[in-house]
Design a protein around this nucleic acid. Sequence first.
DNA 1: ACACGTAGAGAACTGGT
DNA 2: ACCAGCACTCTACGTGT
Length: 314
Amino acid sequence: MQATTTAVGRERETNETTTEREDACPECGSALEHDDTRGEVSCRECGLIVDEDVVDRGPEWRSFEGDGENRSRVGAPTTNLMHDKGLSSVIGWQDKDAYGKRLSSRKRRQLARLRKWDERFRARDDQERNLKQALGEVERMTSALGLPETVGETAGVVYRRALDEDLLRGRSIEAVATASVYAAARQAGVPRSLDEVAIVSRVDRLRVQRAYRQVSRELGLEVPPTDPREYVERYASDLDLPGETARRARELLDAAIEENVHSGKSPTTMAGAAVYAAARLTNHSVTQADVSEVANVARVTIRSRYKELLEAQE
DNA sequence: ACACGTAGAGAACTGGT
DNA sequence: ACCAGCACTCTACGTGT
């Protein structure tokens, strides 16, 4: 046990030195900004995206004690995907000790009793058992939908709250679990349609929709309308547009928000349209097709919006 | 190749019954 | 609980530069 921990630690350590990252922008040399929620590393000055999809949810392995030998203060990361957050102890089923030797009959009886009580505590009451099943479903669905683990965790949190608020009465566990996944995916900015989630769910679309309605209302789960300006940097960067264009795009959006033409429209649409319009205004050639590609919005939609944006400028 | 326009369908939400 | 209507976005097709 002792030996394996240090072995893992060493491997991590060597990895760390090889993947050393710089903290200055390759373009302009100013400080970089790490956005953990979006997994992006971007430049504070020119908005260049240096790195995307950086994910490191692992534990923190450096040792702060002495010469760096003892890393035992960290355990496994806790996760909302396990009904006990992964914090419970585990009693093996084999009647062997740490060296693999058979146990005495007395010890075996003792372990059997421990296991029994461990099991009783683990799923102590209906709620816990309910949660256990639901989280299993959440995990299954998120992975079937190709959603990142963080979404599953958010869904777990949502489900827990629904359970606490007593929202499950008359509703199936599965329906609420699916609704939680649906909500979590939206909040994480990687939405899946109701149909998509219903396909991987064991309940039909309508039930999911109803459960979601209820849950989102009762829990006040407003999916905060994301600010279109948050997308501008990335789009401009992906299209190799200069900071000037990005700035212009932000101005367009400011005016649009002022005039309230953005409400009800998807933020990615608005951001894409703004970037396109700004590119034209600053004499940089970008096609609608390019913008629609990076913004994941149909060309027609870019078309219909960018004119509105320009009108709102007056 | 690109921009622009229109029509019809689909998805998600709202409010009335 | 169900339905109709809604605003938005999409696909698919067209025309114009």
